[in-house]
Nucleic acid binder design. Structure first.
Lengths: 265, 265
DNA sequence: ATGTTACCCGAACGATCGTTCGCCGAATTG
DNA sequence: CAATTCGGCGAACGATCGTTCGGGTAACAT
């Protein structure tokens, strides 16, 4: 049972339809909120019957849960791959920022759902999602911490060698604030390319608004442009991302409910 | 009909109860989302009968609309008052940041509703809310623009005299991102006082993470502490804020619906 | 051509939603 | 003290929600 999953075109189509439903659900939830999204509206939007969804997901709540977990897993593995081999911490921050913004821009609805509907799940599944979110958060926090440590020890700054962990957290949350707020305002027609936004946020984070900054005039973003036009990290890039290094780290936990799921037997 | 509104204790109690309902509604909406909040749950939370709300608001939607408009009006007039007489632009930014964060910390649920439920209203009323929001946004944008202009023209920076308006917008949105994200993570027991958060965000915005900054070691925040312990700007500070300089700038617009509102006749 | 499987959906169920009607006790007035 | 008004709510209505059941239909294997 190693690689026959992609061989049978049956399960392949199944996964494709599942993804299409998830994408449509993300749009609907982003627009109306989780409780405001109706299964009937989703059926109308996808030109499908109402009962069809229950062949792919056991409940409306399961739809939200799958959407959130798979999105966080995709983002984490995507940014981890992009960070590989990048050593300079300031550049690592740029890679993280750009990766996050690209995902935000290409899957705006999904990002909105991740930010807004964190509290719509029951305690158990919410904890699973929070763990994934913290894993993603920690990647950024380590980068910020490294930059701050290097900055403090450099001869330029006021140089107290020890850095306050509460301050590091506040700064990391501030960076995430800049990133996550973008789904509400960013419009490629008015505010430039995602690279422009990434540069603005990265420069603001590293150098501030007015300070004289050694990295203010960073020269070669050209190398970054190379992987900046990578195909695209979808919600769950199907068939390929299964092997990226992650396994299902959450047990079915509550799938034992009375949903029927008459498939994949 | 000039000042007799506060004389009659009848309408006074009415306004007090109205505010109490709004506060409870903010908590409920913040927790479950607008569509997830039920009037029955609100009745249970406030130990009131279900039909009582319709003596104060014509509908559930009217509750959200009143909450959002009055909150934005309160924030705008509050920060305007705090900014009066402050000339230095960097200090003005600090005042804005601290004011916003204090409101955020003291009325966390309201802030969450302002950020999340912007799209739950029909087009007409949503536009009214957006106008108020833009007014508040522009206050911050002007400050950011001034700081950036001064920084560009100063001898230190790379000094191109013209500043890109798209860049100003991106920067202002980034500042708002840092501010508005706080409702999701800020906990006074772990992350310091609102003043600490305000200092972190203000310094990050002005000076960045590592840059040598002339304002990095700002000396006297002592004066700011004076009005930082002002009583408190509530949602709608009742009876007083009516005269701050604003009038109802939105016509009733749609209150002509079939709600009964058997009051204040 | 025939039997089998997998997929999809129309129709219905019970629960719960926002809203309204009309009565009741308390407070105010003369 | 009697008359009157007003704020409050129990109970009910129609609509709509998430979910389920069972049959119909196209695609596959033999």
């Amino acid at each position: 049972m190693s690689a026959d999953s992609a061989a049978h075109p049956r399960q392949l189509r199944h996964q494709a339809q599942r993804l299409e439903i998830l994408k449509a659900a993300a749009d609907a939830i982003a627009e109306h909120g989780f409780h405001g999204m109706t299964m009937r509206g989703l059926a109308r939007a996808t030109a499908r019957g109402l009962a069809t969804f229950y062949d792919y997901f056991s409940s409306k709540e399961d739809l939200l849960f799958s959407l959130q977990t798979e999105a966080f897993e995709t983002m984490t593995s995507s940014v981890s791959a992009a960070l590989e081999g990048v050593d300079d911490q300031a550049e690592r921050l740029y890679v993280f920022v750009l990766n996050h913004l690209r995902y935000s821009a290409e899957h705006r609805s999904v990002m909105r759902v991740l930010v807004h509907e964190a509290s719509a799940l029951p305690a158990g599944r919410r904890k699973t999602v929070r763990l994934l979110k913290e894993g993603y958060f920690n990647i950024c926090r380590d980068i910020v911490s490294s930059i701050l440590a290097a900055g403090c020890n450099s001869p330029g700054a006021g140089g107290v060698g020890k850095l306050d962990s509460a301050e590091v957290e506040r700064l990391t949350y501030s960076v995430f604030g800049m990133l996550n707020w973008t789904y509400g305002w960013y419009d490629p027609r008015h505010h430039g390319s995602p690279q422009d936004v990434a540069r603005t946020i990265h420069t603001l984070a590293v150098c501030g608004l007015v300070a004289r900054c050694p990295q203010r005039f960073a020269e070669d973003r050209s190398q970054r442009h190379a992987d900046a036009i990578m195909p695209l990290p979808l919600l769950g890039n199907p068939g390929r991302s299964e092997a990226v290094s992650r396994k299902r780290l959450a047990p079915p936990e509550k799938n034992i409910s009375r949903g029927n799921l008459r498939k994949t037997s």
